[in-house]
Design a protein around this nucleic acid. Structure first.
Lengths: 215, 215
DNA sequence: GTCTATACTCCGATAGAC
DNA sequence: GTCTATCGGAGTATAGAC
């Protein structure tokens, strides 16, 4: 059966990627080498090139997998919810949790730790979906009168992306070992929707926002 | 004269660090090699070890230099100003500008791009000064009634750090070639003090903050 | 599909002559 | 302080036997 061979091949590719993630977690994202993966897999380095044509191809497969995982996480969190601030908060939290649970992939996605590596167009494609997802949520918040319409512009999207990138960057750089629940920076995540809304006030002040601070 | 020898030696160390920065900018922070530096300096690799005992020592010297440069930038920006939101805005902007003008050092300071490298205690020391600097500014803002006193707690400091880290992380990862003036993310920096203040409202709403959005 | 063998390049670091 | 020479090892990738 060709199916069996194909499945076996896919399983081996899976295992290569899994081992690669382990190596990157232990040695650093940029320190991934085909030889190390081969040793752990119990084969000789040349064998790996039957599954991935180059080291960059391994990075690319992981990059695509990461984008898809992150996209799935933020989408699923808002599933069934009306687009708006609350759904945005759910997506932000899910995204932050995903990042803290997939730190290695997150570094590959959101930083540029590997000199010379640029993701292929296909691997980068899900990022557009992520952008569209948050754009839709913010437009929903505008329609519901939760934020000013300017929030749905590029600047608003940049701010939303910067807010989440800020807390996770600080968390990963300063307290990488802390979990999502314990992190001094991830603790800020529930407040991000309120901070975002306060940055694009609709009209009247004092509107109660989810996650807003109560003094 | 021993002074002349010492000065000559210091000059060579300076040039080594300068070349190392160039290499890191072109090849990636983690891709720095002593051999590359030696080639550009026009000497043989072993000669470098007369100036730095190891590659890690080069990273460490650059790390310390970066911390001191960043500390100096944020301090100087607030010099002569009363501690408060306005001074905090000046420091944030100066910090963002410094980062965009010293991207390689910034990666070394705020990300962890080099597997196995940990800064020495001495090299890390200025970071404590940076923390204290912003703590003082926020305490000034509290004293002036610009923000709630909770802003001066660890959570407030974490938020301030996350705000600036977010915009520069996004800028470096997505538009590294853009300058501070043109960046889609650094453009948000002037609004950060207002966003921070809105997150820790003192009492009455609607207070005008520097950098606050006008709708 | 896996292996051995290998070509090729590079690295960090050291020893010792000059 | 600089050099040559070298150790000892790493890496990516390919060729070809099995």
């Amino acid at each position: 059966m060709k199916d069996r061979r194909a499945r076996r091949r896919a399983e081996t590719q899976e295992e290569i990627l899994r081992i690669a993630l382990d190596v990157m977690a232990e040695e650093g994202v940029a320190a991934l080498t085909m030889a190390t993966v081969a040793r752990r897999l119990g084969v000789q380095p040349p064998s790996l090139y039957k599954y991935f044509p180059s080291r960059a191809a391994v990075y690319d497969a992981l990059f695509e997998r990461g984008q898809l995982g992150y996209l799935h996480a933020v989408r699923q969190a808002a599933e069934g919810m009306e687009p708006g601030l609350e759904a945005m908060g759910a997506s932000l939290e899910a995204g932050a949790r995903w990042i803290m649970g997939n730190q290695v992939l997150a570094q590959l996605l959101f930083w540029r730790p590997v000199p010379g590596f640029r993701p292929s167009e296909q691997a980068y494609a899900p990022a557009l979906g992520i952008h569209a997802h948050f754009k839709g949520l913010i437009e929903g918040a505008v329609a519901r009168g939760e934020v000013h319409q300017d929030a749905a512009g590029e600047e608003g999207l940049a701010l939303a992306a910067s807010l989440i990138a800020g807390v996770v960057s600080q968390q990963l750089a300063n307290q990488p070992e802390a979990g999502y629940e314990d992190g001094a920076y991830t603790r800020l995540v529930p407040r991000l929707p309120g901070i975002f809304a306060a940055s694009y006030p609709c009209r009247g002040k004092g509107r109660k926002m989810p996650g807003e601070r109560v003094n």
